[in-house]
Design a protein around this nucleic acid. Structure first.
Lengths: 218, 218
DNA sequence: GTCTATAGTGCGATAGAC
DNA sequence: GTCTATCGCACTATAGAC
């Protein structure tokens, strides 16, 4: 979190009116956390900047030193979250050659990441449709990007005769749906004391039962 | 739709100021459709009653003849949608004894219903967390109600030694997640020309591959 | 670097004409 | 049964004091 906010501070130095790095990074971190918390409770549009003042302990004027308007606040949060997700997923799977191992790793990585960054994932899923043109498009592309990762892995396994899957696109879609359920209904899973490891291992077993069973052996 | 609006008109006669049934039902139907359309685009809270005026062609005064405030409009929509869903699901599966057939029917029924009532399902999923206390609670209960249907079917099949499933709750959770993906990302599936029949048959195959394979035979 | 005060906009809701 | 006009309130964003 510290690292991310430090990056954001550097990159958006032009639009951020704060000069001292220590104060800037601390307040940015505070603002992001508060924004995700409030938005996930009542929606980004419904969250007023006065709510954000109360939650952060900053005044209206101080907030506007960190972003030039409410929409820019949203853009910064989105931009940074997306970069983080794509980087982690790519790095975790790029060196794996074995299809089955790669599929497992992709599922585990996505779930662990969304466990750590749950508020951001939830925010992103729920708010994307409210974004204006450009951010809206990027949100959908980001979703398709991770879906494509799964399509590619399934296609690779299919070529190697390890996976037996009729429709890779549809299979990737439902894998994505199950991964998303983890952060969308996070409260439900916590209440039921289901840990992320258990959920991940379950998803892998379910998918492998479907694609790893050679129909010719039946 | 006509039938539902007719029912709503009868039940809420006290708070609806309109006397003539024909006009009342026609306008109610118009208002509901417009509310779902606008809310699903920008969120219920963000949709102003002035937006609703434009979309329905009615004036502010006219709108307020059909509900006493914005929250009541939401409650009426939710109440009726929930009743509809629970009724249809129950009626479709209650007379089926065969576990496998029952599971299939439940999946197909839910998907076909959410295909017809897609705007309502989407609305309900996205807005539940913004509801006040009582409606919020009912929304969550409704979600758990359909999940419980699947838990019960899985438990029944387990007892009969037809299904081999370790964790029925977790299995029901992901079934629900996949059913929800159909109406949450409806646009994506339409763009990819995936029909509801294909999706339903895919989900059934995927789940059966996991639970219908007796591990003792392996 | 952060504050308070306020301008300007748009909201939900109602009253009263037609 | 539907309309227009209007009220009071909360919002984003900014200007200027400290």
């Amino acid at each position: 979190m510290e690292d991310i906010c430090s990056d954001i501070f550097q990159e958006n130095r032009s639009s951020i009116k704060i000069k001292k790095k220590r104060i800037g990074v601390k307040n940015l971190s505070n603002i992001f956390e508060a924004t995700l918390k409030l938005s996930n409770k009542k929606g980004f549009k419904t969250m007023s900047l006065r709510d954000l003042c109360k939650e952060t302990g900053l005044s209206m004027g101080a907030l506007y030193s960190y972003f030039k308007n409410k929409d820019e606040l949203l853009n910064i949060i989105q931009q940074k979250g997306r970069l983080m997700v794509e980087k982690v997923l790519r790095e975790n799977i790029e060196d794996i050659n074995d299809s089955k191992k790669k599929l497992e790793t992709a599922i585990y990585s996505h779930l662990y990441l969304s466990e750590i960054m749950q508020p951001w994932f939830f925010f992103s899923y729920m708010e994307t449709r409210h974004f204006h043109k450009d951010e809206h498009k990027k949100g959908i592309e980001s979703e398709l990007y991770t879906e494509q990762i799964f399509i590619d892995i399934l296609e690779q396994g299919k070529k190697e005769n390890i996976f037996f899957v009729e429709n890779t696109v549809l299979t990737a879609s439902v894998i994505k749906a199950m991964l998303q359920d983890w952060y969308l209904k996070h409260g439900k899973y916590i209440r039921r004391k289901i840990k992320v490891e258990e959920y991940a291992s379950f998803i892998v077993k379910l998918i492998l039962a479907y694609i790893a069973a050679n129909p010719l052996n039946k």
